[in-house]
Design a protein around this nucleic acid. Structure first.
Lengths: 256, 256
DNA sequence: CGTATGTTTGACCGTCGTCAATTGTAGTGG
DNA sequence: CCACTACAATTGACGACGGTCAAACATACG
């Protein structure tokens, strides 16, 4: 349900940890890609790669700040940049012809926004901040330009898109489940990403309902049911996980 | 619901119609990309592009034939090729931990299979033929190699991935709708692609049910309901559209 | 012709959507 | 600092949609 399947990682290698973190945060480097970078350096392309790195870190130095309710981009905006969430939370959604909101995902720290526009001229969803948020901005033109010089960048872009696709797919899996399981999955996913048993949801019940395609009342009822079963403590947006194993079972093996 | 949003097209230009069709069928060229190709040629890169074209047509000359029920690829297979459906129909699916089948899409003539693996080592779904099918095979390694020489190929790959993502997204929209609307959309999409009011479904009721996340009985009931309303004539897998405008309305503006 | 499989239909019941009332919380202005 | 207001969240009642079980039926294949 959340856009990123994995979080950015750093590794010891040819690049300094700081550089890697920067690069990783910007492009969600997986371990294997990270080592690809290392290998590239080891293969005598160090000069080339480090200049690449310089350009990338340069590119990612742009920042953008949003207040709650402010839009990062709107459906049909022309595609110009990728964004990486540095802090805060956002949601993406589309509108049905009837004006209903269909939430397509939530973005937390480290998530990449806009990969879906990589092959298109236009974005096909709007993205709005749920709380004050700051983001890195990566101009797509710059990225494309770099990619012609460095195949690694191209692979990264492909990987980004694939990840976003996989995230969408697991979202589909969630929707097919019982609502109870979907909620449990949502909570678990949030908790995993934040590595804590206590969390504050950035999104409203309505947002969750629109993500799962159910009524907001149903979301409420499932929250209270999970609380009565002792798996969660719920107080509005504040959630405490009381019984992790049971919750995982309720999620029904979050799968894939 | 169906994987491709648009079908391959041919245009008059630098390349011969036959070449274009080949290229278009293989990579789902959009008009604007197609004209990009033309522009590239006009900008004096003709030699380069036509060698690209030669390589592409060469690459796409590989064929693959499947009987019904035969697998094109299985979940966790390593990613080696893209496929383009030349004839026939296939479905892709994943299994839940409980062993339930979740259909992720149907592929008809002209559809591209496997774009989701572009950034990954493994495919995350299985693909099986619903009826005898023949496909073009495009080795990924070759494609990547070409893309380092020709930015256009890279753009095409990005576009392919984006298209697959958009298809997934519209699938999500369908799932959130009423089952009736979902079925109507499915039929309309099939009919549009085949440009006819009379069609034979390649997939079973169970497959449709697994795609939409409902019971197969529900699919049956909606089919008969649409028939009783006079929108469709249904006889097992044979469908005739009797009232297109009404059907489109039932689909509820297939949107986006 | 007979069996296996896919399809259709009916009966029953649980889940979830809708409508509505109530509570709780945060933000506003006095 | 305290009402007052607006809105999110919660809970209840009721009905419809869709899942499950079961049976009847049609079609394909041997």
């Amino acid at each position: 349900m959340l856009k990123s399947i994995s979080t950015a990682r750093t590794q010891q290698g040819t690049f300094t940890p700081v550089e890697k973190q920067m690069f990783g945060a910007a492009l969600l480097i997986e371990p294997e890609i990270s080592s690809t970078l290392d290998q590239a350096s080891e293969l005598g392309q160090t000069g080339y790669s480090s200049s690449l790195l310089q350009q990338l870190t340069c590119v990612t130095k742009r920042f953008r700040h949003l207040n709650a309710e402010q839009y990062l981009l709107r459906q049909q905006d022309s595609f110009e940049s990728l964004f990486v969430v540095k802090k805060g939370a956002l949601k993406s959604y589309r509108l049905t012809p009837e004006g209903e909101e269909i939430v397509t995902g939530f973005y937390l720290e480290g998530d990449v926004i806009g990969a879906g526009g990589l092959g298109n001229q236009k974005h096909f969803y709007s993205v709005v901040a749920l709380e004050p948020a700051s983001l890195y901005e990566i101009p797509f033109a710059k990225l494309l330009q770099l990619s012609t010089m460095e195949p690694i960048v191209q692979q990264l872009m492909l990987k980004l898109l694939s990840q976003e696709m996989q995230a969408d797919q697991s979202l589909r899996l969630i929707q097919l489940k019982q609502v109870k399981a979907a909620i449990a999955s949502l909570i678990l996913n949030m908790a995993n990403r934040l590595t804590t048993t206590q969390l504050t949801l950035p999104m409203s019940r309505v947002d969750i309902a629109n993500l799962l395609g159910v009524a907001s009342e149903t979301v409420c009822r499932e929250f209270t049911r999970l609380q009565k079963q002792g798996l969660l403590s719920v107080n509005r947006k504040h959630i405490v996980i009381n019984d992790l194993p049971q919750l995982q079972q309720a999620a029904g093996a979050d799968c894939c």
